[in-house]
Amino acid sequence: MLRLRFHGRGGQGAKVASRVLGTAAFLDGYNAQDFPLYGAEKRGAPITAFTRISRENIMERGVISEPDIVIVMDETLLSDPQAMPLSGLKKGGIIFVNTPNSPLETKERYNIADHVITLDITKISLDMIGNPVLSGLAAAVASRIVGIGEDAFRGAVEKELSGIISDRELLVKNTEAALYCYNAIMPVQIKTAESIREGENVITIPFEIALVSSPAINATGNTPLRRTGNWRVFRPVWDYEVCTRCMTCVARCPDGCIHVNEDGYPYADYDNCKGCLICVEECPAKAINKVREMHSRSGEGDR
């Protein structure tokens, strides 16, 4: 059995990617199971999705804690302490990272010893679809790595995406971009070790007084601990030559992330700006540019 885990951010398409792969495997004659896990369903927040593929009956359910293959759809997740996309990866496992960097650079940057495959699927998506929607593309990469046939993959993309994209032209663009990614990757011989699980000890939990054991939070002020700056695909950047200091962006930012400097010009708190780009839309002077974020920014993760 092959176990794949997709890591993405809410809205990027990790869930749909896991489904396209599941359907592709199903159409290619395998038993498949797919399953997403997301908490409070926030756009930009880390989510995971899982696909199991097997010739045998699948006698597992729930999360995959020891994947053979990890698909990292957002490079910034590699340094996110809540996402931890590499955790539990089996010895000999494969990591795909959506990045403009080479596998070698990626391995060095994140100190990864396992087999890394890279492709800048965000760029492909922006160029070929016009939006950073990665579902079909990430599924293409995963399908190719595990050796799913092209016909089965194409059938799966069309089946899964036609249910959620009503615009025919957009559907064609998605399919073309997905097939481009499919053909840009080489299949890999996957030889993961059986299991690296460390034995878990079963324990008896002790009684604790209600001061400890009631579901109340006694700590104050821990919201700032969770920074949201690395959720961005694009960063808003102000051109002060054009900016009229009208303050529209300050008023429109839904997260209160735009402040004003001593000279009266707005600037973003990049630790927390989620990159929604409402400021770019709203700026009457068109003084805010969107610049694609490229790398994981460890300084902008959680404190």
Partner: peptide
Amino acid sequence: PYLLYTENEWKDMTKLKETAGKE
């Protein structure tokens, strides 16, 4: 009756209690 629970789960619980200011 045994309440099934593992040491690793207990570690995660301890971390959650710390974040919540329990200890």
